[in-house]
């Protein structure tokens, strides 16, 4: 019930092909942040919803914009632009929230727009790249080559953990 409602809410998302459950392992939901295309494993995605009123909460990193109440579930929202250190931009009608379930906790990713669900065969995934030039664990798990385009596949566990960030001075 929830899935359909949410998908209907976003016309682009409604145009997405029905995911074949056998091939779910190789399926990725791709979305745009700035000029780049990113992907998360479809198995992690619980739903896609339009932007809603965000309620600010204290004591969270700057890239957690606040929480939304999604049918009685409190979901923190991460602005992916802020998380990646890209310039923030105002939300518009194409801005969407991709709700993921990571380690039994929900998290919503605010992205510029969702693109499509892609089936990426294993031989098109390049994991050899040595990501994480900076300190800590990289949020990128692999690169996927789809025809002439490139999608950056994210490690959602690294994305939601903030171990790579220095905690702000609390004093």
């Amino acid at each position: 019930m929830s899935q359909t409602e949410a998908v209907e809410a976003k016309t682009e998302a409604a145009a997405m092909p029905i995911v074949d459950s056998d091939g779910i392992e190789s399926m990725y939901l791709t979305f745009a942040v700035g000029d780049e295309s990113y992907g998360v494993s479809i198995g992690m995605v619980t739903e896609i919803v339009g932007m809603q009123t965000i309620m600010s909460v204290p004591d969270v990193p700057h890239y957690i914009k606040g929480v939304i109440n999604l049918r009685g579930k409190v979901i923190p929202l991460m602005d992916v632009r802020l998380r990646f250190g890209i310039e923030e931009r105002p939300y518009d009608e194409r801005t969407v929230v991709i709700v993921l379930e990571v380690d039994d906790a929900p998290i919503g990713l605010i992205v510029d727009r969702v693109s499509e669900v892609l089936d990426v065969p294993a031989d098109k995934i390049d994991r050899t790249g040595n990501f994480g030039g900076g300190e800590g664990k990289s949020m990128v798990s692999a690169l996927a080559r789809i025809e002439d385009r490139l999608a950056i596949l994210l490690d959602v566990h690294a994305l939601v953990s903030d171990s790579d960030l220095k905690m702000p001075d609390l004093s």
Binding site: V57, V60, P61, D103
Partner: peptide
């Protein structure tokens, strides 16, 4: 839970 667990 999750990202909110750090709220003191």
């Amino acid at each position: 839970t999750g990202a909110l667990a750090q709220v003191r």
